[in-house]
Design a binder for these strands. Sequence first.
DNA 1: TACCAGGTGGGAA
DNA 2: TTCCCACATGGT
Length: 206
Amino acid sequence: MDLKEKVYWAFLKLLCAFGRQNWWPRIWNIASVEDEVILGAVLTQNVSWKNVERVLENLKQMGIRSLEDLLKFEDEVLEELLKPTAFVKRKIKTLRGIFGVLRSGNLSREELLKVYGVGEETADVIMLYAYNFPTFVIDEYTIRWFVRFFGFLPKKGEIREILHFEDLFYLKEMHALIDELGKRFCKKEPLCENCPLRFKCSFARK
DNA sequence: TACCAGGTGGGAA
DNA sequence: TTCCCACATGGT
């Protein structure tokens, strides 16, 4: 079984074990999928999704239904609104930066990466889940799982190449499934006993 | 109380 | 290039 086959085996196994994750859209009160993904992707940086839900609830209460609606407020107001997701000053700057890219009409992964506060993961999440651009989202969970599952650590670009399949359903679900795996089994202290991937995992089989 | 969560930027080595 | 730390809040 080569690397690609092993990746696809893991994908099917995780899909059977955890089911579809349907990360986005979640359709809160946000009018467009794009705005919802952008808001979620920025606000969830280094905080749990629960914190983001609190903010989305705040926005719902205030009748805010788009990024444009939100960014009409002064920073002081935004800081209070977004407070549950922490790092608010930077996140406000980031959201304004992304909004600027959208208005310029030059949306691309490269343009997003120029925005302060947008790293590769956030740019990829926005491009994949909001705009259906086929890219693999690599985060800490992915790297941790990859190293354990395959038993080696290649460069980031190579991880992307190995995990990539030109299929949006796969790209969207696989990233979400790996995160679910990371939360349930492939934690910092791994729980290999009942992990659905343990039979082909180089770490679990040691 | 300590650690972690759907990261990123910047400085030091 | 890589490593480490600050950024800040809420849940367990």
